[in-house]
Each structure stands twice: as C-alpha cells, then as structure tokens.
Simulated scan of single mutants.
Amino acid sequence: MTQPLLPDVRRPANGGPKAAARNRAALIVAAREIYAAQGLDAPLSAIARRAGVGQGVLYRHFPDRDALATAVLEENVRQIEQAAAAEDMSFADILGVLTWHLKESAAFLGLLHMRGSVDHSEALAHALALSDRVERALRERLPDGHRLGAANDLMLAVAMVSGAAGGPEREARERRAMAAWRLLGVEVGTVRPFDA
C-alpha cells in the first residue's frame, strides 16, 4: 500500500545557541514563578509549559529537579551581587532587591535558613556558599555605623525577615517582609528585581 504524500512542511529553523540560552533563561523565570506559587515540589511539566518549551528541553538544560532549583538560586544570588556592584544603588535599594527575591522565591527563602542545618550534603555545601555570597555582597555595601554592622546582625536580620516572608501569597509575603524590616528599624528601597 502506498503512503499518501504529506505536504512539504518545514520544521522551524533551529535557533542554535541563542535559542538554547533563551530557553534556559525562560525556564529559570518560569521556575521562579511556579515555585513561588506552588513550592519546590511543583511539577516540572508546569515549569516547561510556563516557559513555552517541551519537557525534553527542560531536561536538556536541567537533568533533575535539584539542578533547576540550584539555577534559580544562582540567578537570585547573581542579581543581588549585581545590585550590590551597581554604583547608583544605595544599601536600601539593594535590600529592596533582596526583599523582591524573598517575595518571589520559596527556594531562596529556604537557602537563607540553611545555616543552622547540621547535614553536610553537597547540596547544603552549595547552599551555604550561595548564602555566603549574599552576605559578602550585602556587607560590601553596608554603610559604616549601620545598625546591622555587628558581626552576625546582618544575616540574622535577613533570616528573620525571610522567616516573616513565608506564606503562599506574594503580596502578603512582601507586606510581612516590609513589616519585619520596619520592626528592625532598617530602611528598604523599592521592592523590585534588579535590571542590569
């Protein structure tokens, strides 16, 4: 039996490395959004759908759930480091960027609470390294004489605010985080992501 001829349909051109970089960035943004709404156990299929890619593309970039969560955390920390490196950002502005990440990312909240854990797994070691990077970025821009200048006060305050920022709704997380900063007597700029 002869197969009917199918119309000559061309597959879209492969975007190459540019498409791969775009897809990876879209997956990280989608993961941050899905994690904020559904937590770290959200289905990976929902993340792929939100990013507008297939699950195969997701797994090509992130072989497992941990790799994707780590990429989201890396992006959060990178944005805080970039904000701290920007000359036109005040310390209050940098705290606004940090607070935005606390509002948007359940994974980031967890990262800032891992210091007290006694488990020394590879994931914990990586999380502690990320937490150290956040502290270094903040401490480099901490004004002399700031109320959070004592040895452990800075990250203790961040942990306290991140603890207050838990919960399922973004707006409530932001309100609670800002109330916690206010109770600590710390000025915070506009809560927003950092755009380089």
Results as ranks from 00 to 15, higher is better:
residue 6 L to I: 08
residue 10 R to V: 07
residue 13 A to P: 12
residue 14 N to P: 07
residue 18 K to R: 14
residue 21 A to E: 15
residue 23 N to F: 00
residue 25 A to M: 09
residue 25 A to N: 07
residue 26 A to W: 04
residue 28 I to K: 06
residue 32 R to T: 12
residue 32 R to L: 10
residue 32 R to W: 04
residue 34 I to K: 02
residue 45 S to H: 02
residue 49 R to I: 05
residue 50 R to Y: 01
residue 51 A to S: 02
residue 51 A to P: 00
residue 57 V to P: 00
residue 57 V to I: 15
residue 59 Y to E: 04
residue 62 F to C: 00
residue 69 A to Q: 06
residue 72 V to C: 04
residue 75 E to M: 06
residue 79 Q to W: 06
residue 89 M to H: 14
residue 97 V to C: 09
residue 97 V to W: 10
residue 98 L to H: 01
residue 99 T to K: 09
residue 100 W to H: 15
residue 100 W to F: 15
residue 101 H to E: 14
residue 104 E to G: 08
residue 107 A to Y: 05
residue 108 F to C: 02
residue 109 L to H: 13
residue 109 L to M: 09
residue 109 L to R: 15
residue 114 M to T: 13
residue 118 V to D: 14
residue 120 H to R: 15
residue 124 L to C: 00
residue 124 L to N: 07
residue 126 H to M: 12
residue 130 L to N: 03
residue 131 S to N: 08
residue 135 E to P: 01
residue 136 R to M: 07
residue 137 A to G: 03
residue 139 R to K: 11
residue 143 P to F: 00
residue 144 D to G: 11
residue 146 H to W: 05
residue 148 L to P: 04
residue 149 G to F: 00
residue 153 D to T: 10
residue 153 D to S: 14
residue 164 A to S: 15
residue 168 P to V: 09
residue 179 A to T: 14
residue 181 W to Q: 06
residue 182 R to Y: 09
residue 185 G to W: 06
residue 187 E to Q: 15
residue 188 V to I: 11
residue 188 V to G: 09
residue 188 V to S: 12
residue 195 D to P: 00
